[in-house]
Computed example of a mutant assay.
Amino acid sequence: MNGAHDLGGMQGFGPVGAEPDEPVFHAEWERRAFALTLAAGALGKWNIDQSRYARERQPPAEYLATSYYEHWLYGLEKLLVEKGLVTAEELATGKAAARSDLSPVGITQMSEIIRRGGAHRIASDLPARFSAGQKVAVRNRHPLGHTRAPRYVRGRQGVIDRDHGVFVFADSSGSDQGPKPQHCYVVRFAAPELWGPEANPRDVVLVDLWDDHLDPA
């Protein structure tokens, strides 16, 4: 998806300043937004890729004018409504309607889900399309749905650095089209390939990409 969230390689947004001794949360509401997202995700109605895609669908002007956890809150509200866990009216009024169709997730259960994490690596003997050292080209695709191929590498050539193994394909998973298992690779790009001849030829960028993102170069 080409949206305001895909800012890799973009100019004009100013420096990214590191905050010394930055806290995990800058305000109590951020802590709550994070906790609510994890708790709601533990219900199993969506996966992490769908959660990312929900945030990406925030209107561009709104996305650029809001903070990180405001993006999380937007995505959470969108998923809660889309999956039928709350209604738009309940969100607007802050008042819950009587519900009998939901099973609550206990603290112990949620803690176990968070500790265990999601199972995105898949045990499979699916053959790899590419091997370490092979030159590849990133497909110049601009899908309407979720994609983990950043815009700045599309149409560029790189080299397979290593194979992570078989994983859920995030693009398919994020658009609710199933796991579509395939190999995920670390692809190494020379800086001049991405940024032009003025880039330092000794610099490289490593990007995780899946089989369906790549073609032989």
Rank of each mutant, 00 (worst) to 15 (best):
G84R: 15
G84K: 04
G84F: 14
L85V: 07
L85H: 06
L85R: 14
L85S: 12
V86K: 03
V86E: 01
V86L: 09
V86C: 04
T87D: 09
T87N: 11
T87L: 11
T87Y: 10
T87V: 15
A88C: 00
A88Q: 04
A88N: 00
A88K: 03
A88T: 01
E89F: 03
E89W: 03
E89N: 00
E89T: 09
E89S: 10
E90R: 05
E90N: 07
L91H: 06
L91E: 07
L91K: 05
L91P: 10
L91M: 09
A92H: 11
A92Q: 13
T93C: 08
T93Q: 07
T93Y: 03
G94F: 08
G94I: 08
G94C: 10
K95C: 12
K95L: 14
K95S: 10
K95W: 12
K95T: 14
K95H: 11
K95M: 06
A96N: 14
A96I: 13
A97D: 09
A97P: 05
A97K: 05
A97Q: 11
A97C: 05
A97Y: 06
A98C: 09
A98N: 13
A98R: 12
A98Q: 11
A98G: 07
R99S: 15
R99L: 15
R99M: 11
R99I: 13
R99T: 15
S100D: 08
S100K: 07
S100E: 08
S100L: 13
D101T: 15
D101G: 15
D101H: 15
D101F: 15
L102I: 15
L102C: 12
L102W: 12
L102Y: 10
L102V: 13
L102E: 10
S103E: 14
S103L: 11
S103C: 13
S103K: 12
S103P: 10
S103I: 10
P104N: 02
P104V: 04
P104K: 02
P104D: 04
P104L: 00
P104H: 02
V105H: 00
V105I: 05
V105A: 02
V105W: 01
V105Y: 01
G106T: 09
G106E: 07
G106N: 06
I107A: 05
I107F: 02
I107H: 02
T108N: 00
T108G: 01
T108Q: 02
Q109D: 02
Q109V: 03
Q109W: 04
Q109C: 01
Q109N: 04
Q109S: 05
M110A: 08
M110T: 06
M110V: 09
M110R: 08
M110W: 06
M110S: 03
M110C: 08
S111A: 03
S111M: 03
S111F: 00
S111I: 02
S111N: 02
S111Y: 01
S111T: 02
E112D: 04
E112I: 03
E112L: 05
E112C: 03
I113N: 08
I113E: 12
I113G: 09
I114F: 08
R115W: 04
R115K: 06
R116H: 09
R116Y: 14
R116N: 13
R116A: 11
G117T: 00
G117N: 00
G118W: 03
G118V: 10
G118T: 13
G118Y: 06
A119Q: 06
A119P: 01
A119I: 13
H120I: 10
H120L: 05
R121M: 10
R121Q: 15
R121A: 14
R121T: 08
